[in-house]
Design a protein around this nucleic acid. Structure first.
Length: 332
DNA sequence: AAACATAGCAACCGCGGGGTC
DNA sequence: CGACCCCGCGGTTGCTATGTT
């Protein structure tokens, strides 16, 4: 038994909506409401499928929609909620009046995700990359770690080199070169030399990172100023990821361009597939630490927090990932 | 100035839940 | 209880504008 199509695909128009179509749809809905999307295009004289009409209405034509840029407060709400519920865009959008799930999703994918990456934070888990690397390192025996590092290098090398050679990173590199005890390669000017040196330095630092025992996580693997992060950051000093300078929240979050260039597009790669993003948040822990399927059981924000409170009123501490709290505390 | 790359956004697609018969 | 239908959701695609080489 196959699923029936939502409409006769041969007879429907697709692609961009014209102002005339918008007018027809808006005026029809103003008169008759949004019951039965399948019949709406027919009755409104539109050669569109009902689904397309519904999307156009909910994402664009609805009179209560905001069309401007996202405010910093809205962005912070998105990030906070995403750290709790993952890619449940409708849930997040429900807390942002005038914003649609599509808006939120697009804004996350085009800006917020990259901005977090630029801050050295994994947008999937909302933890610093160094913490994730440390976690992986603790779970694998040395030979496996070595292979993993090799694989990671293979995965990211092109992207890193692209960024290293195309973007302005001399500032960060000069900073790291100026640091005492730093033994990374000096900044070079020839592009080929840059590439060769970058590759060699990546290899050198990765292998050093794998060999240094004290770089393994301590009790607080995500400690933003701990030896773990520092060592990982140091080990990967060719990537200007400032874990020790990790900041989140106002006012630094809105600081465009404050992140490291290498990681600004990290999430465009295979390490951050949409499916993984979704799955990574499938399980949420409740107060007792019991795991439950986060997916379909979460129907609204209050069910997550087991309360009827409006999400705005929840102190950020209750929403925010522990790692952010850690970072906040360290800032104070 | 042209070609290419990237970002941003609108729209589409397929799946699955829930209601109804 | 199962089939059918409608709708919403999340992921993906494709187009356009803008920036870079």
């Amino acid at each position: 038994m196959g699923r029936i199509p939502c409409c006769e695909k041969d007879n429907v128009k697709r692609g961009q909506w014209t102002p005339e179509e918008d007018n027809k749809l808006s005026s029809y809905i103003a008169q008759h409401g949004t019951r039965n999307w399948r019949l709406i295009p027919k009755n409104a004289g539109l050669q569109r499928c009902g689904k397309s009409c519904r999307l156009r209405w909910t994402n664009y034509l609805r009179p209560d929609l905001k069309h401007g840029q996202f405010s910093e407060a809205e962005e912070q709400t998105i990030v906070k909620l995403h750290s709790v519920v993952g890619n449940r865009w409708s849930l997040i959008a429900a807390q942002l009046p005038g914003r649609t799930d599509n808006d939120v999703k697009n804004h996350w994918n085009t800006k917020l995700k990259k901005r977090l990456s630029g801050m050295g934070i994994d947008p999937v888990t909302h933890k610093p990359f160094s913490h994730l690397m440390a976690e992986i390192a603790t779970t694998l025996a040395p030979p496996q770690v070595a292979h993993l590092a090799e694989a990671a290098l293979g995965c990211f090398k092109d992207e890193m080199l692209h960024l290293l050679t195309k973007k302005r990173i001399d500032f960060q590199l000069q900073q790291s070169n100026a640091a005492p005890g730093n033994n990374t390669v000096p900044y070079v000017t020839s592009k080929q030399e840059e590439k060769d040196d970058a590759v060699e330095t990546i290899k050198l630092n990765l292998s050093r990172a794998m060999q240094e025992p004290d770089m393994l996580p301590l009790n607080k693997p995500w400690e933003s100023s701990g030896a773990t992060s520092a060592n990982f950051a140091g080990a990967c000093s060719v990537f200007p990821v400032s874990v020790t300078g990790f900041q989140y929240g106002p006012p630094s979050f809105g600081n465009e361009g404050g992140g490291s260039p290498w990681s600004q597009s990290m999430c465009t790669g295979s390490t951050c597939t949409a499916g993984e993003q979704g799955r990574s948040h499938e399980k949420l822990k409740d107060e007792n630490g019991d795991e439950s399927e986060g997916g379909k059981e979460i129907k609204n924000a209050s069910s997550i927090f087991n309360t009827d409170c409006v999400l705005w009123d929840i102190p950020s501490d209750d929403l925010i990932n522990p790692i952010y709290r850690e970072a906040f505390n360290n800032k104070e």
